[in-house]
Design a protein around this nucleic acid. Structure first.
Lengths: 168, 168
DNA sequence: GCGATATGCTTGCACTTTGCAATTATATGT
DNA sequence: ACATATAATTGCAAAGTGCAAGCATATCGC
């Protein structure tokens, strides 16, 4: 007598499921970097992403950061708070509309960014070294489309997905 | 006089940085699914992953799950606890070595899994629809190598990475 | 045998992160 | 000037995480 499983899989195998595979690579690769900036600077993941964004713009308000980092407004606010506490960013209330505060990176923020980015680049280099030139090109263009589609999937929520499938 | 930035980037642009791009797709796509199984079954991310793993084996011990899910032993233990509380899995202490408890999925666990997997497959289908057949093949083989390399990067820790780069 | 040590897993507890309601500050429409 | 809208922040409860210590079982050395 067995009551554990009728064994009628839907056929989703975790290790072969594209979203999981992407997640796995991203997570494994992010872990050492997170450890580094966590231990060295006391920076959180959100903090690092925001730092990276303000390093490549000359000033950004919270909404721009939110869009660029895929973070919610709360996380952005807290991340900016963390960065200013660490002395890595400064807030100056905007000139025209003072609801938007401009955030910019400081000298020491940039120094920290550069050290983190060096590790980040090393990671990317090691990953890319495993791919041929044509694979890199293909991956780049494929990822661009996947980014677009994933944004739509996210925006639609799960109800939209259920309607895609055979309405379980 | 400006004190905000010497503007000497290391050239890491977040939105073009491979790990971030992978993360972004994975995160955006995972969010609706997480919402679904969270709201519907009260399942956590770890719970879902473990459920997926025991759905494709007939029984698994905690170590096998840990390897298959890239979770630490604590998370596995708690995830199994959650699944048994929900009635989605049962633990039976192993026959030969009773330190290893065999975990198997139950009938209702499989029912839940099938509903979640249906959404998961819908997501994957929508993503793959954006790619040509040859892109899918390339992505598959590229991802396999990236998985291997990312596991090595993770295992090596950040000190090994620093030595890769120009020792910052 | 049987104590010492190793292994697999679990629990408790402090700490961190997250989600959300409520709040503040500013701007805009009437 | 007052109501409403928008951007950002804060406070707090809930959930998640990391780690030390603990429990159960197995294996080794004698």
């Amino acid at each position: 007598m067995k009551q554990t499983a009728p064994a009628s899989d839907d056929g989703l195998k975790l290790s072969a499921w594209l979203p999981y595979r992407l997640f796995l690579v991203a997570a494994q690769v992010a872990r050492p970097l997170e450890r580094f900036y966590g231990e060295t600077f006391g920076l959180s993941q959100a903090g690092w992403r925001i730092l990276a964004v303000i390093a490549e713009r000359d000033a950004a308000n919270a909404s721009e950061i939110r869009r660029a980092c895929a973070l919610d407004p709360f996380a952005v606010s807290r991340g900016i708070g963390q960065l200013t506490e660490l002395g890595f960013a400064v807030r100056r209330s905007g000139k025209s509309d003072r609801r938007f505060a401009a955030v910019s990176i400081t000298r020491s923020g940039r120094a920290a960014f550069n050290r983190i980015a060096a590790l980040g680049s090393a990671i990317e280099t090691r990953l890319l070294a495993r791919l041929s030139e044509s694979e890199r090109v293909t991956l780049d263009s494929a990822l661009t489309r996947l980014e677009g589609e994933s944004a739509r999937i996210d925006a639609g929520g799960w109800r939209a997905l259920r309607d895609d499938a055979g309405t379980p």
